[in-house]
């Protein structure tokens, strides 16, 4: 992601999120595809228990061969079974819950931290701003995955801990973007004018700066979900993410990859799910950037 942050430069005064954003979004075929995928995944996550006849943790005796090999996709198990004889489709449907929860919670928290740091540093500057931004630089110098793994090892991983770990690693990008934006907005004449009219910091922040930041936060919020989903999958793939038996698309692959040559479906179905969801948020995020933030040409314009 780092490369694109540079694109955020001072541009003309941003409008607030224009009305009809949704309408404009729906007029873009790729964004529609993205929204559709997100819709399907959300539907699957919410209605998982009703969409499948099996329980998420049911280790079925007839789900394994006598030698202990998993079953390929068949009439009973549409996507086959995993190495414990559980229905893979069921695991993937319930895994969608994990991905969405982490995507929304972790990204929400990192958005909150990132925006707070970025706005504080960008508006107040001074020594507070300097310290905050130097700390952000420091965080940027960490190899993100190593940091996340170490954090996951310090705190015993659970769904919420994984979400927090991801948030702690991911807020940095947003802080940088929001900082740059805030700085350029607060240097504008109209902010100076307000200030000379005696407006307090709170008033300037809430009335003038925050509204201008909304579009960029929406855009980065959407793109960030994709990054979060991928990081969760990677941590779970390494075995330091969401704890079994709670399914996550990443830990399904972690548990089954030893069989990957003999039973590739165990890796490719959950892999495809991760890819599709991350892609969907990227497509929507890019379209939103296009609509809300004309200074940054979305790539699909």
């Amino acid at each position: 992601m780092s490369a694109t942050t540079e694109e955020t430069s001072a541009g003309p005064v941003r409008r607030r999120a224009p009305r009809g954003t949704l309408r404009r979004l729906l007029s873009r075929p790729l964004a529609v595809v993205g929204l559709a995928i997100i819709g399907i995944v959300t539907f699957g996550a919410i209605f998982a228990p009703w969409l499948t006849p099996y329980g998420v943790d049911d280790q079925m005796f007839d789900g394994l061969t006598l030698q202990g090999a998993p079953l390929p996709p068949n009439g009973h198990f549409l996507l086959g079974t995993d190495l414990l004889g559980r229905d893979l489709l069921t695991r993937i449907l319930f895994g969608a819950r994990t991905s969405l929860i982490i995507g929304i919670v972790a990204n929400g928290v990192s958005l909150a931290i990132g925006s707070a740091v970025g706005i504080t540093a960008g508006y107040f500057r001074g020594w507070v701003g300097t310290i905050l931004m130097r700390f952000t630089d420091l965080m940027m110098a960490f190899p993100a995955l190593l940091l996340a793994i170490c954090l996951a090892a310090v705190f015993t991983p659970s769904l919420w801990i994984v979400a927090m770990v991801i948030a702690l690693v991911n807020w940095v990008q947003i802080a940088r973007v929001v900082y740059t934006e805030t700085r350029s907005i607060s240097e504008r004449e109209f902010v100076d004018a307000e200030r000379s009219l005696g407006a307090g910091s709170m008033r300037i922040l809430t009335k003038h700066i925050l509204p201008h930041l909304v579009p960029i936060i929406i855009v980065w919020g959407t793109l960030g979900i994709s990054v979060t989903v991928l990081l969760e999958a990677t941590l779970s793939y390494l075995g330091v993410g969401v704890q079994p038996p709670t399914p996550s698309w990443g830990n399904i692959i972690f548990e089954n990859q030893t069989y990957f040559q003999a039973a590739p479906w165990l890796v490719f179905f959950p892999g495809a799910a991760i890819l599709a969801l991350a892609l969907a948020f990227n497509l929507v995020g890019d379209a939103l950037r296009d609509i809300l933030d004309p200074t940054q040409r979305g790539i699909l314009s």
């Binding site: 943790d57 280790q59 190495l83 414990l84 090892a153 015993t156 991983p157 075995g239 330091v240 704890q243 079994p244 038996p245 548990e255």
Partner: peptide, 24 residues
């Protein structure tokens, strides 16, 4: 972790609810 889940399922059949901690 797979073996732990098999144990977990066995114990759930007699009413013991097991929380798995899978660590380094």
């Amino acid at each position: 972790p797979r073996i732990a889940q098999a144990i977990q399922q066995d114990l759930s059949k007699i009413g013991i609810k097991v929380d798995i901690k899978s660590l380094a």
